[in-house]
């Protein structure tokens, strides 16, 4: 059902070539006279990969939109708070030390990553509170930058010290949704659902925060409570996305902006549209990543920027023209 929506929403804005490509691709799966191997490939490899790409894209865009609104800052993205850096540290630690947690097996990496991400969130919030009891957005952003810088340094340190795991670590950091089974989808889904709910319910509050915390308080928003809820929601989405796919850039920053240019800044529309288009965007990006120089694959982060930046520039230009 989720995929159905994604295709539906995809087919409108993107060019018809890609459209045909997709229709063929999706037309195959349900028809009965297809060889089992193909069904197997689609169901066990392609479908979970696409679903995961969608979930990751949706999470990052939604989180990005929420961070931008909450922090009243168009430059904010899901990585502003340092949650992703924390999650990355968790993943790199696993790769570096070849950790294997009991019971979890190959899922050690995402589990550790999510744990580190959440830990980072609480560290950032705790630190912010210690510095500034009112937890103003400026302090939150600064704290996020401090923690991001520190964690990036940790990651660089491990990269510098590592030997044979180097390629593995770099590949992970660049981000990818390749070779992920349904289990990853299942693991991410609860975080995704909770995160989405927490954010979508708060669309009015996000509109208020977009005018600043004082203004939000004046119109009756319980600022401290709502801010915490939104931060947790966005961080859950970010942490989960980074844990399963690595730090994929650009989606969380640019998709909300593209939606704003088209549909306006009102979070009532902005949030669900960011979710849908963010997911669709990453599905497409992943498609491009693995087909452009097939049979080998490009890191998806490169594709998101390659597609996203010109698209964004085009929309931006268009809008400026209309204004003048």
């Amino acid at each position: 059902m989720l995929l159905g929506i994604s295709i539906g929403s995809l087919s409108i804005p993107f060019s018809s070539i890609i459209d045909i490509f997709l229709e063929q691709w999706w037309g195959i799966a349900p028809s009965p006279d297809i060889p089992d191997t193909l069904v197997q490939i689609v169901m066990a490899i392609r479908l979970p990969r696409v679903v995961l790409a969608f979930l990751v894209g949706a999470s990052l865009s939604l989180a990005g939109a929420a961070f931008q609104g909450l922090l009243k800052n168009p430059l904010a993205d899901p990585y502003t708070l340092g949650v992703s850096s924390g999650a990355s540290v968790g993943a790199v630690v696993v790769l570096f030390f070849h950790l294997q947690l009991p019971w979890f097996g190959s899922f050690t990496l995402p589990i550790m990553s999510i744990a580190f991400g959440l830990l980072t969130l609480f560290l950032v919030l705790f630190f912010t509170r210690a510095v500034d009891p009112r937890m103003s957005v400026e302090t939150i952003i600064l704290t996020g930058i401090i923690f991001s810088a520190f964690f990036s340094a940790l990651i660089s340190l491990m990269i510098a010290l590592t030997g044979e795991e180097l390629r593995q670590i770099i590949t992970w950091l660049m981000g990818s949704v390749a070779m992920r089974s349904w289990k990853y989808v299942v693991m991410m889904l609860p975080f995704f659902i909770i995160g989405c709910l927490l954010l979508l319910v708060n669309h009015r509050e996000l509109n208020a925060f977009a005018f600043g915390e004082e203004a939000a308080a004046h119109i009756g928003v319980h600022v401290a409570k709502r801010k915490l809820v939104i931060l947790i929601g966005a961080s859950l989405l970010t942490g989960a996305a980074v844990a399963v796919s690595g730090a994929i850039g650009f989606v969380g920053l640019v998709v909300p902006h593209m939606i704003r240019l088209v549909a306006g800044p009102n979070h009532r529309l902005l949030l669900p549209l960011s979710l849908l288009y963010g997911g669709a965007f990453l599905v497409l990006a992943d498609l491009a990543a693995r087909t452009m120089i097939s049979p080998s694959e490009l890191p998806i982060g490169i594709i998101t920027s390659l597609i996203g930046a010109p698209l964004f520039a085009g929309l931006f230009l268009n809008r400026m023209k209309r204004k003048t």
């Binding site: 009243k72 168009p74 977009a210 005018f211 306006g264 009102n266």
Partner: peptide, 9 residues
């Protein structure tokens, strides 16, 4: 002053 960074109507 309490302006928004985004273009609300």
């Amino acid at each position: 002053s309490a302006d928004s960074a985004f273009g609300y109507t």
